[in-house]
């Protein structure tokens, strides 16, 4: 799996990603999307990640992008 922006979060990210891929391939693609067994791992990873984004000043950049184009679909596609 790919690394996190902050090496401190990579282990938490790895645990979450592994959980997510298992859920995605075994549950989600089979129509069982209601379960959320990765919720706690995601929360742990997010606490670490948000701290890193804040200290690098990237959080503001992301907020701005979310406001201008929530789904990145401003470009015209035919």
């Amino acid at each position: 799996m790919s690394a996190s922006i902050d090496p401190e979060c990579s282990e938490k990210k790895e645990r979450y990603d592994t959980c997510f891929i298992k859920w995605y391939s075994e549950k989600y693609l089979r129509g069982e999307s209601q379960t959320d067994e990765c919720k706690d791992l995601f929360k742990e990873y997010q606490i670490c990640l948000n701290k890193a984004l804040k200290s690098k000043g990237i959080d503001a950049m992301i907020e701005e992008a979310r406001k201008t184009s929530p789904n990145n679909d401003n470009a015209k596609h035919g």
């Binding site: 690394a3 996190s4 922006i5 979060c9 997510f20 999307s33 995601f42």
Partner: peptide, 11 residues
């Protein structure tokens, strides 16, 4: 590509 982080996710 040196890092990929999930910011949010929902169904």
């Amino acid at each position: 590509v040196v890092a990929v982080d999930t910011l949010s996710r929902s169904v």
